[in-house]
Design a binder for these strands. Structure first.
Length: 445
RNA sequence: CGGAGCGUAGCGCAGCCUGGUAGCGCACCUGCUUCGGGAGCAGGGGGUCGGAGGUUCGAAUCCUCUCGCUCCGACCA
């Protein structure tokens, strides 16, 4: 993408309403535009990152054996009357009437609807296990939206639902989700710690929240800091292998890590003092096992191998997709702007032409741009007629992890500069070498 | 929802107290100079002062109502 033809409305000054760094940078980098309290348009740069995050979530869900579908944003109230949540949910649920005065609602979550789909089409234990998920916009009419996309009213969420014949099978689904989530967050360059959580209005007694450590987080967290060095890495996981998956979960949940909701000071005090940490975290996901809470009232039953009709065991599992943008920025930025991890960056690399109009510089940039494209990498080429300082400032702000700087001075020696946004370190090399290096960095992305 | 505050150009703000017909910086447009970390000079365009009533010869400014947004607290992916 050539910046001169892109739509990237960056701001030099900080918008007054943005209180936290991720919100400020998302506005300044031209990623979002607020339309109402807690409701945002996604401008091209923000939209690219959102799509990228969504893609990673999809890939890891499918890898775990979960099946994508898509349910609507608007739902009939009757389904919610069946589960009893139409009255329980309160003002957070946006209620709407259609032209025939039928009660509708903008879905805050989809347990009822997925259960309805399940009960109409599945009737035998032979069709289990089954996990369906979607990534869809939700609306929760928060009392107080704030912090940009971190706490919006409209937000994009991945929500998945497992249907299993018994508790053991459902707990395996729970574990499978935990592992797939760990992998999902790692691919985004995040350390998200599973912490035992309290169940909210969704219900259930087995639940973990995934927290990204950040001092702007809304939850207070207590943890043994050795959890932060646990990594899933590239290990090969068979998601159908119950014991292997359970082992991974055990590895990641044995060390103490809890939010203020479930914190137990007595247990916490037993951690060696050097590892005992109190901090703040951003909740980026949550998994639940809630047994037959929805299947029973809504009649989601299957016939088991003895010919008996039994309610299925369910769980629901969510990842806040739009919130993740904020969380990633909170975890990865400096005073100049965002620093995108390679996994989610809107463009893999930026090209800065220091002297637009200089025939050698222009030609070198064009060559780099095309060579990168040939390797499947779409660079953001700053071909504007701006001074070097303005171009650097823009690149730093929008946070592309790698930058190739091209100027007449370097070209006279046959080199361009490859700079890491994270470390600020630069290395001079030939344009061909720069392309190869970038391609190597993104190999297997 | 309880408490506090703010709505004046795309963004950041001044003007309001003490009414007299709207201003500054950034951004934008034109020209010249400049050009390896947000350039300088000159010129220019853009605003129903959130909205509706009211007071007044006259309202961004005073009064009433209303809408929106933000912050602190209690709740949530």
């Amino acid at each position: 993408m050539r910046l001169s033809r892109y739509f990237l409305p960056v701001l030099k000054e900080n918008p007054a309403d943005a209180q936290i760094v991720s919100h400020r940078y998302m506005l300044r980098a031209g990623m979002i535009r607020q339309q109402a309290a807690g409701i945002y348009s996604w401008l091209p740069l923000g939209f690219r990152v959102l799509r990228r995050i969504e893609e990673i979530v999809h890939q890891e869900q499918v890898r775990a054996g979960h099946i994508p579908l898509l349910m609507p944003t608007l739902q009939p109230a009757d389904l919610w009357r069946e589960s009893g949540r139409y009255d329980d949910y309160g003002q957070e649920m946006l209620r709407i009437k259609d032209r025939h005065e039928r009660d509708m609602l903008y879905g805050p979550t989809n347990e009822e609807m997925i259960t309805d789909i399940f009960r109409s089409h599945v009737s035998s234990y032979k069709d289990l296990p089954l996990t369906l998920y979607h990534i869809q916009w939700k609306f929760r009419d928060e009392l107080r939206p704030r912090f940009g996309v971190m706490r919006g009213r409209e937000f994009l969420m991945k929500d998945g639902y497992n249907f299993d014949i018994d508790k053991d099978a459902a707990l395996h689904a729970y574990n499978r989700h935990m592992v797939s989530y760990l992998r999902t967050y790692e691919r985004m360059g995040l350390t998200a710690i599973p912490m035992r959580a309290a169940s909210g209005p969704i219900g259930g007694d087995n639940t973990h929240e995934f927290l990204v450590l950040a001092n702007t987080g809304e939850s207070e967290v207590f943890y043994d800091d050795r959890v932060t060095s646990l990594k899933l890495g590239a290990r090969d996981i068979d998601y159908d292998d119950r014991s292997q998956v359970a082992e991974v979960c055990k590895e990641f949940t044995t060390l103490y890590a809890r939010t203020d909701e479930t914190h137990d000071q007595a247990v916490f005090d037993q951690i060696p003092e050097a590892h005992r940490k109190v901090g703040r975290g951003i909740e980026v996901g949550q998994i639940f096992y809630f047994s037959t809470k929805y299947s029973e009232p809504m009649g989601a039953v299957v016939v088991n191998d003895k010919g008996e009709r039994v309610p299925v065991h369910m769980g629901s599992h969510g990842i806040g997709v739009s919130r993740l943008l904020g969380a990633i920025i909170e975890a990865s930025h400096d005073d100049k702007g965002i620093i995108w991890p390679e996994g989610v960056t809107p463009f893999p690399v930026g090209i800065v032409n220091l002297k637009q109009g200089d025939s050698a510089a222009d030609a070198a940039c064009e060559g780099l741009y095309k060579a990168l494209k040939a390797k499947g990498l779409e660079a953001l080429y700053d071909d504007r007629d701006e001074r070097a300082g303005a171009k650097f400032a823009t690149m730093d702000l929008i946070g592309l992890p790698w930058r190739i700087t091209v100027g007449p001075r370097g070209l006279a020696n046959g080199v361009v500069e490859l700079t890491s946004r994270r470390t600020g370190e630069s290395e001079e090399m030939s344009p061909e070498a720069a392309v190869d290096r970038v391609a190597q960095i993104y190999a297997g992305r």
